[in-house]
Simulated assay, not measured.
Amino acid sequence: AINPPEPSAIEPSKPVKKSAELIKLMIHGVVVPKARPRVARNGTYLPPRYRAWRNRAEVEIYRQISEQNITHKFPLRKAALLIRLLGNHRTNSDIDNLAGACLDALTLNGAGVLIDDRLSCLPQLNVEFDPDAKETGVYIEIEPL
């Protein structure tokens, strides 16, 4: 005699964990690496080329954030970040200086997206470089935690 299989107990459905809302930004053009402050008789200043890039990046971040329907309150207190450098950037630049420039543009003294770039606020940071991308710029993906 063949015994039919016993019906398996049906597990109650688990609540689906809502995935965090990703914030995606694209800043076109070559990223200017983070520069050391220069000291002069009249005080400390950042090089004009770096200041110009950072100001342009901050304006672009503001514009893109205002166009997205983001429900998070800014500045974010904790987030995971992906920075993907695309295209033709100076390959003799340190990757940490390129990422640092992007982080400076995102923090409270910049566009105000992140409260800070300390470890307690930014526990996960991935930086990638894709020299074969068709356009030059930086793609930033922010996952609020």
Rank of each mutant, 00 (worst) to 15 (best):
V31E: 02
N42I: 12
G43Q: 03
A105I: 01
K73C: 10
C121V: 08
L86M: 11
L82W: 00
C102M: 11
R90K: 04
E128A: 05
Q64R: 05
L106W: 09
V16Y: 04
L114S: 09
R63F: 08
N126L: 02
K24H: 09
V31F: 02
L86I: 06
A40K: 07
S93L: 13
R77P: 04
L86F: 04
L103Y: 08
V32L: 11
D130F: 03
S120K: 09
L122R: 00
L76K: 12
N97D: 15
R90W: 00
R84E: 06
L98V: 09
N69T: 14
R36W: 13
R41K: 08
A80D: 14
K73G: 10
D94T: 03
T44H: 07
Q124G: 10
L86C: 06
N69F: 06
P47F: 15
R41Q: 05
M26C: 10
R49P: 03
A20T: 15
P33F: 08
T91M: 11
I70Y: 04
P47K: 04
D116R: 10
L25I: 13
L46H: 14
I61A: 03
L76C: 11
L25Y: 09
I23R: 03
A80R: 03
E21W: 00
Q64S: 07
A79R: 02
W53I: 02
I115D: 05
M26D: 09
V30F: 02
H72N: 14
P75S: 12
G110L: 11
N42P: 00
A105G: 04
V30W: 00
H72L: 08
E60H: 13
R56H: 06
S93H: 13
L22H: 09
G43V: 07
L76V: 08
E58F: 08
G29C: 06
L22M: 06
N88T: 04
W53D: 01
G43N: 06
N97W: 12
E21P: 00
S93I: 06
Q124L: 09
Q68N: 12
K73T: 15
S19P: 15
L81H: 01
I23F: 00
K24W: 05
L106S: 09
K17S: 06
R38Q: 10
D130M: 06
L108F: 07
A35S: 04
F74T: 04
I27E: 01
L22E: 11
N97M: 13
V127N: 07
M26G: 10
E21S: 14
Q64P: 09
V127H: 07
A57S: 07
I95F: 11
K34W: 11
P75G: 11
L22C: 05
Q68W: 05
A80Q: 13
R90M: 02
A99E: 05
